[in-house]
Amino acid sequence: MTTIAVAETPLVLSLLRLADTALVHSHRLSEWCGHAPMIEEDLALANFALDLLGQARALYAYAAEVEGAGRTEDDLAYLRDAPQYRNVLMAELPRGDFAFTILRGLFLSAWAHPFWQAATGSTDTQIAAIAAKAEKEAAYHVRHTGEWTIRLGDGTDESRRRMLAALEALWPYTGELFEADAADRAMIAAGVLPDPARIRPAWEATIARVFDEALLPRPADGWMQTGGRSGRHTEHLGHMLAVMQHLQRAYPGCSW
């Protein structure tokens, strides 16, 4: 089985973290295609997935260009194994029910929106260009998942029960969104990527606003899960990649 080893400079690593989070989340959303509770939502989740896939492609293409080893976006997506993936753990958790999917979408897009907004001012022109597009798309994702969170949280007993269960399951994964290690700090110092600590107030404000209307309690910040950004994943990612990468693994180099 071909598996590539990418030379992870701080910039390449940062790009992979962003791209992997977008791709893995996109794949989880795409699993709803044909299964959503109604046709409008089927389309919405598929479009949400498509936006993230487009962002991932742009980020992978740039990561490949920066690495300079002649790789393509496809190589990075299909020829790395779970330990080489750098996405946050929240993105890889199994699809779950609709409440879980919506709340995960809210947590991730409420982070992505201010992140990309700040990244439009990046000293790296390619990142600034990607951010300017991603920011606009993320705004729609926040609106959509925010509105559904309110409907489900302040909905029926059953929808509220499911929302509360999703909240309990997902909250321990929110801490990883705001971590910064040496690579992150190098990128922050160079003005390439925003400081997650400065993204947090906007994220908190969006969550507070939505939770307030959804009648959901903001949990206390207890012990947080971590590791995805360094390649320490849950057992779920390997299974997901087995499906996602199957075609390239079975028929190396095949194309449509």
């Binding site: 409008e40 939502e41 389309l43 919405a44 598929a46 479009n47 949400f48 498509l50 936006d51 798309e137 729609y140 609106r143 959509h144 509105e147």
Partner: peptide, 12 residues
């Protein structure tokens, strides 16, 4: 009806 229509650029 929905923020996302048949394509990403359209709402329903």
């Amino acid at each position: 009806i929905s923020e996302f229509g048949s394509t990403a650029c359209k709402a329903l």
